[in-house]
Simulated assay, not measured.
Amino acid sequence: MTFTLATWNINSVRLREALVSRLMSEETPDILCLQECKCPVELIPLEGFRALGYSHVVARGQKGYNGVAILSKLPMQDVGGHDFATLGHARHVAGRLENGVTIHNFYVPAGGDIPDRAQNVKFGQKLDFLTHMRDHFHAEAPEKSILVGDLNIAPREDDVWNHKALLKIVSHTPVEVEHLGQVMDAGRWQDVTRQDIPTGNLYSWWSYRSPDWDSADKGRRLDHVWATPDISAAAHGSRILRPVRGWEQPSDHVPVFASFDL
């Protein structure tokens, strides 16, 4: 089986239904993982997506916040979603394909603006979420698995527009990078995007606050595709669709793609 998947923080699937449909029509990924859907599952606009061939849906929703969904052309079984850090948030869902590959879709908390858990509850929640992810994958070692999503951390120096300037900015602080590294080590996850594109600056997010995001290019790679070692060598064709950031009423994130021969 060969399939292509994409991960995209859509920042409201109802508001940006037309953009999701456009991506489905123009890029035709077999599987599309969305984060920050911002609605209960029953309000995800599935009718149009099904008309485009995405008839299989695994999702967890929440009114106005969070929310994750896997939309697939391929048959998929819902194999659960965990409430990491017991926040009561819809931030994880997993689906299993008929070939036994499990796809985890994550939306890690952003963490607020102050990188200090004593001053910022949201930052503490983010670190706790990552710690629980680490412990989960230590306890249940993943096999034949892909992990995607908005992990809200840009781990490498070339994953941000200015490493030194962002060392004290949430998403690139050393403590966050360390926690994400522990999650990777726990599941022996391989960074598929950087496996395919090992060098050079890569970004998947540009702030709405920038008046000219394209020319300023102050981006960060917050969206990731990982795989377990038993299937990581089957991954190829990684790409980040930067032009999507310029679509009308865009999300501040763009889709990240990878293909697998399994």
Rank of each mutant, 00 (worst) to 15 (best):
S215N: 09
M24A: 07
V183R: 05
H163V: 06
L15M: 15
S55V: 02
D113K: 13
R220V: 10
H136F: 13
Y208L: 10
A6R: 05
T193V: 08
F129A: 01
V225I: 14
L15R: 15
P109F: 04
M24K: 03
V170D: 08
F106P: 00
A94R: 15
E248Q: 07
A227T: 01
G100T: 04
G219H: 04
N11Q: 04
E248F: 06
T173S: 03
L147Y: 12
Q77A: 14
T86Q: 15
E27A: 11
I114C: 15
P109N: 08
E178W: 07
E176K: 07
D150Q: 11
F3P: 02
K126C: 01
T4Y: 06
Y54T: 00
W189Q: 00
L241M: 14
K73R: 02
I231M: 10
S204N: 00
C37Y: 00
M76F: 10
R22W: 05
I231Y: 09
W189Y: 02
N99L: 07
V20G: 00
S55D: 04
D261Q: 13
T86G: 15
G149I: 02
H132E: 14
G237M: 06
D261M: 13
I114F: 11
G100K: 03
N162K: 09
G61N: 02
P211D: 06
W206T: 03
L19V: 01
V177N: 03
L23G: 06
I197R: 11
V101P: 01
Q119D: 03
E27W: 13
H92W: 11
D158I: 01
R209A: 14
Y203A: 11
G200H: 12
V192H: 03
G53M: 01
T228R: 02
A59C: 00
P174M: 05
L151E: 13
F257P: 07
G81H: 14
E42S: 14
F260R: 01
R239N: 11
Q190G: 09
L166T: 15
A216P: 04
H92Y: 11
E178Y: 12
D196Y: 04
P40L: 07
V58M: 01
T131H: 15
L5R: 06
E248P: 00
Q195S: 09
F137E: 02
D158V: 02
P142V: 13
L167I: 08
L202T: 02
D185L: 10
G81T: 14
A154Q: 05
C33R: 00
P243F: 13
I10W: 04
Y65P: 06
Y54C: 01
S25F: 11
H172W: 00
Q62G: 08
C33N: 00
M184S: 05
S259V: 02
N201W: 06
R245G: 12
V170E: 09
T131L: 14
A216Y: 07
P109L: 05
N152Y: 05
Q190F: 09
G112P: 06
T199Y: 09
V58D: 00
Q190N: 12
V192G: 04
